[in-house]
Amino acid sequence: MFGKIHEIYSSISGEGISQGIPTVFVRFAGCSLRCGKTENRALWCDTPYALGPYQGESLSISSILKSIETYDKDHGFQILLTGGEPLEGKNRDMSVAIAQSIFQFRNANGKPYPASRVETNGSEKITLDPFFVFTMDYKLPGSGMEERMDAENFEILEKRHNSLDEIKFVVRDRIDFERSIEVIREQKIQTNILYSPVHGEVDAKELVEWIKIDNPPKCRLSLQIHKVLWGNQKGV
């Protein structure tokens, strides 16, 4: 089995409930969404260099696992599958194979973080598999991609009932925030909720004020600490 991998590197988790944890990132190539690219607004994707399905290197599962081990010899880092989109097309099979292998080894050997975290865009169906934990985006109107969201994912998250799962709302403006509140109420979301501002389009302090007023359950502001530390560099 081979997959298109754009990069593998170690750093700390930059956002969400796992922020600050030493992490090995496996970035898949290829994503069919183009978030933020509307008639009068620009693409906002953090990793536009990984959007194309042919921008990565074709790697086997054994070579990916060996590469992960070069960064994490003691098997103590969180493993994060990201993209691109790790659940899109053939990437899904590779993500499953990687996560299963890591889960089995770590459970058998008493290692931390047995379940690999998957950052997924909300358009691909998530799973009940215990070898995954999910950071799932829900794309709001400002992204231009809301119609691509798979609403069944909310039911799957509820069935998973995993305290490490999280839903991320990237907010472009007040309309986006109000829509997020509608979605939370409509879906009766009890999973961890992250709010992130679109850089340069909404002030994080203003977003905090909105959060304070509505105070959705289990929500938190999530800023990208890796950008604070290193700016927009790749591989950090």
Rank of each mutant, 00 (worst) to 15 (best):
S11N: 13
E124H: 04
D150C: 12
R27Y: 04
G84T: 05
Q100D: 10
S60R: 13
Q55F: 06
I98D: 02
I64K: 01
F77E: 01
I175N: 14
E7P: 09
S95P: 10
K188R: 15
M136G: 12
E182N: 13
P112K: 09
P22Q: 08
S63A: 07
K139H: 05
F25L: 13
Q187Y: 12
G83V: 06
R34I: 02
G110V: 01
I12Q: 11
S13G: 04
I98C: 03
S62I: 00
T127S: 15
R160F: 10
V228T: 15
Y71P: 04
S13I: 01
K66E: 08
D173P: 09
F77H: 10
P114Y: 03
E186F: 02
I68D: 01
K90L: 04
I79S: 02
M136V: 07
R185S: 12
S32H: 15
S62R: 11
T82C: 15
Y71E: 08
L229M: 15
L65D: 03
M1C: 08
I64P: 00
F132L: 10
D176N: 08
R172S: 02
I8A: 06
T191Q: 08
M94P: 02
I68H: 00
F132G: 03
D129C: 08
I189K: 12
V170G: 01
Q55T: 14
Q19G: 03
R220G: 05
K139G: 02
P112T: 03
L229D: 11
E158N: 14
L140I: 02
R160I: 10
I102C: 13
D74H: 15
Q104Y: 05
T120M: 12
V208E: 13
L194K: 02
N192I: 06
R117D: 00
L229V: 15
C219Y: 13
K90D: 13
R179Y: 02
W210S: 01
I17Y: 14
K37Q: 14
R27W: 02
S58D: 14
T127W: 11
I8P: 04
I79C: 11
L221I: 14
S116N: 10
N121E: 07
S143V: 10
S123E: 04
R148T: 05
L140N: 00
E15Q: 06
Q224M: 04
S32E: 12
L157C: 13
A204K: 10
Y49H: 14
L207W: 05
K188F: 03
R92H: 13
E39R: 14
R179V: 01
Q190V: 11
N107A: 03
P48Y: 09
I175F: 05
L87D: 05
K168M: 00
T135V: 05
Y195C: 05
G122F: 06
S18I: 04
V198A: 12
G231E: 11
I181L: 14
G89I: 05
S58M: 15
S196N: 07
N107H: 14
D150Y: 12
E147I: 08
I102N: 07
V171A: 07
V202D: 02
D203C: 09
I156A: 13
Y195R: 03
E206F: 07
R174Q: 10
E15C: 10
I213Q: 09
S62K: 14
E69C: 03
E206M: 05
F131Y: 15
N153A: 09
I68Q: 00
C45L: 06
L207G: 06
G14D: 04
